[in-house]
Design a protein around this nucleic acid. Sequence first.
DNA 1: GATGAATGAGTCTTCATTCAT
DNA 2: AATGAATGAAGACTCATTCAT
Lengths: 202, 202, 202, 202
Amino acid sequence: MPRISDERRAARRAQILEAAWACFQKQGLHATSMDDIVRASGLSAGAVYSYFASKEALIFAAVTTSLGALRDLVATVLEATPPPPPEELVRRLAALVAEFTAREGYDLRRIALLGWAEAQRNEQLRETMQGFYGAFRLGLTETAGRWRDEGRLPPDAAPPEVAKLILATVLGFVVQSVLLGDVRPEDLGRGLGDLMAGDGRP
Amino acid sequence: MPRISDERRAARRAQILEAAWACFQKQGLHATSMDDIVRASGLSAGAVYSYFASKEALIFAAVTTSLGALRDLVATVLEATPPPPPEELVRRLAALVAEFTAREGYDLRRIALLGWAEAQRNEQLRETMQGFYGAFRLGLTETAGRWRDEGRLPPDAAPPEVAKLILATVLGFVVQSVLLGDVRPEDLGRGLGDLMAGDGRP
Amino acid sequence: MPRISDERRAARRAQILEAAWACFQKQGLHATSMDDIVRASGLSAGAVYSYFASKEALIFAAVTTSLGALRDLVATVLEATPPPPPEELVRRLAALVAEFTAREGYDLRRIALLGWAEAQRNEQLRETMQGFYGAFRLGLTETAGRWRDEGRLPPDAAPPEVAKLILATVLGFVVQSVLLGDVRPEDLGRGLGDLMAGDGRP
Amino acid sequence: MPRISDERRAARRAQILEAAWACFQKQGLHATSMDDIVRASGLSAGAVYSYFASKEALIFAAVTTSLGALRDLVATVLEATPPPPPEELVRRLAALVAEFTAREGYDLRRIALLGWAEAQRNEQLRETMQGFYGAFRLGLTETAGRWRDEGRLPPDAAPPEVAKLILATVLGFVVQSVLLGDVRPEDLGRGLGDLMAGDGRP
DNA sequence: GATGAATGAGTCTTCATTCAT
DNA sequence: AATGAATGAAGACTCATTCAT
């Protein structure tokens, strides 16, 4: 009965992944031992290794699974037609990250910080992340194009650069909220709104 | 050997710190062994330990020394009177980070990413970072107030939120440039300039 | 391997403890490295550490296990009714220590000397030893009381002081036989007998 | 001027030895590092090594110097003519050890326990101790002979065995007073006196 | 399939000793 | 002669991974 078996396998995988997330958040990627995860998952070492070939594979899965879930949510926001104005888009994206956090008892932002550090020494992870953030930025570039077409941005505005700015803002929100812990999505929206409201001339 | 001169001590410390930076960048904080650093520094294990009491102390020093050097540069930019317009300020701050990088053969941005991850499990490091980024943001808040006073921002603009937005942009630049590697400081300036040039209305 | 049986666990523990005893006797407590014990036990470092959490724990177990085994034997001698005369009691107690020695290929006396030295810097060990020797002496005090009641000692004899003398004799036997190596239990019995046979007056 | 130099050398030696005693007592022989002693002595590492060739040499000196000082005191007691009765001799010898203790701020008994443990792995130390305790026992044997000659002991008493008993009592006093800490020299005298006062028959 | 005991290379750190200054 | 910085071998301990049961 492969059906039940498959479901079970998926459930076990999720169980391990959640244990891993919990440990990683508390102790970091490398200070977490496989034994920590084994104990947190309630399974045996052998069982964990039958789902993930190595600690590295588990780290990869822990980070990219989060990324995958986030991708779908981001897509929803980016596909809105017409796109929300910039300050609203930034607010929504930041809220996405912050709310994603709230769910499931683990903090996506913390996992992200760990993943970025790890990506520097793990090529596979780095490439996966480049794919994700590259696609994200491409979506933002398209949105920026639409803003320009709608007249929200001047005709000579450069969508790729606007996308870089928006992406930086969202990534920076993650860092800032983990390190300083006092930044709300609406703060960012307000800040960008204020900047855009000025005409830039004294 | 009789008592070593203060200069020599400082030089040795720097020598070890540079070896550590090089290793950390290549392999990450925890995948780097003390032996890696010992070999890279050209000293002996005992010598390294006479300058840094533990690996943790070395990590702390490696991260906070960078932070300290950066602090001074940031201060220079923030103290400019009158302050440059927002898009120019963002460009300069990003350039600072990127250029700091070029010097001394180590990449401040990579160290930053590693440091952020580490700060989650190292309280001392976390507090030091909070101090640094908190002060940074306070400086930005003041700048935003001046923008408002000069009429660059509307009278009802909120300097703290503008500061959060700017800080996020700079931190996000670090992440984005490490992960995607194709973002220049002027891209961010351009992107923000384009956003501010729009009146925000379609 | 699935869960190991309690017997096997106990056997492994004993195997490690015996290896430790052998090494400690040859080289002393601190000059023995964990690797020495690991090799002598025929197990791996990890296995040894799964039975004893640290070298200190292993030292504690090595010393107190001996003490525990000795306690039972001592009890047998002290419970004899009526108690043997003093010189015979001393002979028996010394013989116990010396014979305990012969068995199992390790020398209780050497372990004792090492343990006494160690007790000065290991509080837990010191307390355990105080408990053991205190109880031992209490038993001797009771015996001395019976001697007095039987008329072997004068009515005004002080059992606690007699117990201190007897305990000192037995402890001193351990030291003397390890350091000089030419003292037999019956020598002590004879010596005490001779002393008691004199009326103490010239 | 060799005179002054020699005095200085002796003073330095004593200074180091005292530092070593203090450290050894607090931490044991092997848990004391040369650096501990160097710092406690107020000298430099090089200076310490110019007086003692190695840690082992320092340990040897620390233990045997104590032994030597004790030897002279013991001799005084043993040479008394006529010899004091057994219980008085035991009391005096124990008092010697306990008082030696009081002087100079270090505890001979603790050093003794450490030395006995060390003697098991240090041949030179073992031989020195055998010489010392052997001579001590020889002196006791002679005293026992005199007791017999004086009629304090029966004509068929065996002086060597009596000496073994007395030596054991004194050594055991050291152990017992370090481990249990509640034994006074007069307790031992009283205990032996009580035993000798009985005729050994119920 | 599942278990968890066992492995053993690798980690951080210490410390007796030396010797350039 | 004296200093104390430097050495580097050795120590205690960990932990990702395997595989006998």
